[in-house]
Simulated assay, not measured.
Amino acid sequence: MRWTLGAVLSVVMSPVWAQEVVDCDWHARADAIVEPWEVNTRRFAGGDVRLALLDTIEPAAGAFHILVLSPPYDELGGRQCKTIGVSAGVGFSGAGFETLTARYDPAVGLSFAMEVTTYDPEYEFLSGTLIITLNQATGAIEAMLE
C-alpha cells in the first residue's frame, strides 16, 4: 500500500486526541517487528498480553505502530490482535518503546504509556505520550495521545 505525502499531512495535531485502534491487517506482519525482538516486545498479565513495536517502513513520517495481543480469547484459543497508529494506516514518526511503562487499576484495567513522535505539517515533528488502556475482560482498547 502506498501513502502520499498528502495522506501523512492530513493528520491533525491537538493537545489530546484519540488514536486509531484497528484489527490486525497488513501492519501486523512478523517482518515488521522491530529488531531485536527481545527489546521491542514485552509481555504483561502473566504472558496473556503482549505489546510489540512495528516498523512498516512506509509512510516514512508515520511508519511505527504498536501491536497488541490480548484477551479475550476466541473459540480456538487465540488472542485478539490489534494495532495502534495515528489514523488510516499512518503510524507514529517515532516510538520510544524503551520508555514503555505499565500499571494496573481494577477500575480501568491495564494502562500503558510510552513516548512517541507524530508528524504535523504546521509544527513538523511533535513529541507526546501515548496512553493505552486495555480491559482484558471485554477486549476494549483505547489509545490517546497527550
Rank of each mutant, 00 (worst) to 15 (best):
W37T: 10
P72H: 02
R42Y: 00
S70F: 00
V49C: 09
A52T: 06
G47Q: 05
E38G: 09
T56W: 06
H27G: 07
V22G: 10
T56Y: 03
F44K: 07
L54G: 04
A32I: 01
D55N: 15
C24V: 12
E58W: 14
W26F: 14
I57S: 01
L69E: 14
L69P: 00
L69H: 08
W26T: 11
S70P: 06
G62V: 06
E58C: 12
C24D: 09
H65V: 04
I57E: 01
P59Q: 03
V49F: 02
A52P: 01
R42M: 08
R43C: 11
P72E: 03
D55I: 11
L51V: 12
I33K: 08
A30Y: 05
L51A: 09
L67M: 13
A30R: 11
S70V: 03
A30T: 12
T56P: 05
A60K: 09
D55M: 12
V22F: 02
R42E: 03
I57K: 08
L69I: 07
R43E: 13
S70C: 07
A61N: 10
R42H: 05
A28Y: 00
I66P: 07
L54N: 07
I57A: 03
A32H: 15
D48M: 09
H65Q: 12
E58M: 15
I66L: 15
N40V: 09
H27D: 09
S70W: 00
L51M: 09
D48F: 02
T41R: 13
R50T: 13
I57D: 00
Y73E: 04
D23Q: 11
A28P: 01
W37H: 12
A32F: 12
D74L: 07
L53D: 09
H65C: 05
P36L: 11
I66C: 13
D31A: 08
I33A: 01
D55E: 13
A61L: 15
A52W: 04
V34Y: 07
L51K: 01
L67K: 11
T41G: 06
R29C: 06
E35T: 08
P72V: 01
A52G: 13
L67V: 01
D48Q: 13
R29I: 05
V68H: 01
L51N: 02
I57P: 00
A52L: 06
H65I: 06
D23G: 14
